[in-house]
Design a protein around this nucleic acid. Structure first.
Lengths: 340, 340
DNA sequence: TCGCCGTCTGGGAACGCTCCCAGTTGCATT
DNA sequence: AATGCAACTGGGAGCGTTCCCAGACGGCGA
């Protein structure tokens, strides 16, 4: 097959103007819903548009307005995130939905970790996007710094970073972790441990702090196992270690559902029943939670809303509105199932 | 914070021309790597570009060339796909990598199932994208039909559809299913069942046909359980039913790794050991495979390559090359772990 | 010497919009 | 009747490229 170009003779704004018997300017005003257009002119234009099958040429508009009407989604370390993060899909859908409502296009800027952030910086400064949403940046992130310097409209999804002046949309990891740990404690558990992860990010630190706060005096640092990743394997390794250190453990807070699933696997292997002998709670309310045996009690993250709100913040900045740089925290909810 | 516009005074091709002491046309020729530029002019232009910090304005180029230099990725039913399909992430990365190598931009066209395909058709015909990649279309897909009518450069990922003239990149589900079933049979299993899914797509049908072909005379329709989704829960339900029907089953081919994980859960619950009492094999080689206890023997799908090849097909069409409409099948490989 | 051709260059003319200014109405107010 | 103002309209200018044509230059064969 040879590629055919799409029908070459596309109608332009001039064709519409000619058919409607008005000028180019009036058509443009109708298209952009501006004031000062008579009802007669408006309906004539609308009729003409459907008659000639007019579709706006974005390239021309972008050139004239010096805006791209596109917002970039910067995702770091694509493989780990795209393939393992249970929330990224929902976040993406939330962003996409908010942007398309506002007639903006989402372009995905996947960053290969082996390339320099220079390439991204150039892309961002190249006017290809009007704004940018950054998912899950680490502290001291080079791209975050570039965005801050460029002064481009931006928002972070996930958690605050060490950069001033850029809003973020996240959840209150501290309170959520504290709440579910408290709830676990209320089921009568006395020796509660935690499998922590992602301590290089605020989210991970906050979950651990929340856990500690919930336990108060009964907190025992011995019962906190630190692992690098939020993965199933980390839960397995962490739980083995914990069981070794404290065979009398009767409650576990895992920093993610994937880890909690690993924890349950290890407990079963060791002949402990869940929730009979040990209560287990997770974090995320991802697909892991319902597929686990037994289904996990966990913290529900409003991932879709996280994306939507971040996109709305960028759009507001693009409209020239003042947005809150302190960021916003979305509500989490405890989902109590059978694992504790 | 008030949004600041990115540095307003961006260098244009004219600035470069002025600094290099050549004309606009020469700069353009250098930028597009055209012939007939003297070495002196070329290096002067290159120096000038870096001196003034020139970055190409895509809107202007798109307007002048009447091309968008963008390729759309159409994803249906975003929720089920994005959130459950273990391959979609890799496919996306593969596409993105091929496109950015060729200086094309990926724009994601997520289709909300409740809206009409009309909106997508308009988008596609609106010149916003030069080509389109469609992931996992069903038979009789309306958007696939629209693409075919438009004659826009396109490729399908996943499996052939009922549309003529559009290439696809997929795997040979029949052969792969046959191969892994045969391998399972060779481990000495006599009563082999299958948990099938996705029979509304060719991929699902082919996997079942491959299973049947591998068993030959020993095929027993009683041992095939049909479920709607490739999900963990389908594996659980399907295996319960199968165990009920045939308590002597000693081998199971699940149509996806997620289902295979569900199968294993049910077997454990029923006191059967894997692979001791029952051998289980899956399909996909997704994250489910390695996290399962025991790790799954399964069929490896080259998801990233699937995306890359589809993108390359679209790019070839865009260059006006003739591409094979029959599509291409990529090699799968059996990954033998511990579950069988 | 002349003419030709291949190599290289400059710049006018689009591409299809938006912006903005200069008008032209029609109506209320003086 | 004259004035002012709000409501509306037309069209020139410009956004930053690419495309393409006209032309300059130099080397080479006749």
């Amino acid at each position: 097959m040879t590629a055919r170009r799409a029908a070459s003779a596309r109608a332009t704004i001039n064709d519409v103007a000619a058919v409607a018997g008005v000028s180019r300017g009036t058509v443009s005003r109708v298209l952009n819903a501006e004031a000062y257009v008579s009802e007669a002119a408006r309906s004539a234009v609308i009729d003409a548009i459907s008659k000639v099958g007019y579709v706006r040429n974005n390239a021309a508009r972008n050139l004239a307005t010096r805006q791209s009407h596109a917002v970039g989604l910067v995702v770091h370390e694509p493989h780990s995130l795209f393939l393992e993060d249970p929330n990224i899909g929902s976040i993406l859908l939330g962003i996409n939905s908010a942007l398309s409502d506002a007639d903006y296009q989402l372009v995905s800027l996947v960053i290969d970790s082996d390339r320099d952030s220079h390439r991204v910086a150039e892309y961002l400064s190249g006017g290809f996007v009007d704004g940018v949403i950054i998912v899950s940046a680490r502290a001291h992130d080079p791209i975050a710094k570039v965005v801050a310097e460029l002064g481009i409209a931006a928002a972070f999804v996930g958690h605050p970073v060490d950069i001033e002046g850029i809003p973020y949309v996240g959840i209150d990891n501290f309170s959520a972790a504290k709440a579910i740990t408290t709830r676990l404690k209320e089921t009568g558990r006395r020796r509660i441990g935690m499998i922590a992860a992602g301590l290089d990010r605020d989210s991970g630190q906050d979950r651990m702090a929340g856990f500690r706060a919930a336990l108060g005096d009964s907190f025992d640092a011995e019962l906190v196992i630190t692992t690098p990743l939020y993965a199933h394997a980390s839960g397995v390794d962490g739980m083995r270690l914990l069981l070794d250190r404290a065979p009398d453990v009767d409650g576990v807070f895992a920093a993610s559902d994937a880890m909690a699933a690993g924890v349950i696997d290890v407990l079963r292997e060791a002949g402990r029943s869940v929730p009979g002998d040990v209560g287990v709670v997770g974090f995320d309310d991802s697909a892991w939670a319902t597929r686990a045996q037994p289904p996990l009690s966990t913290v529900h993250q409003p991932a879709g809303q996280l994306g939507r709100r971040a996109a709305e913040s960028v759009l507001a900045q693009l409209r020239g509105e003042t947005v809150d740089t302190d960021g916003t925290f979305l509500e989490t909810a405890i989902v109590w199932r059978d694992s504790a």
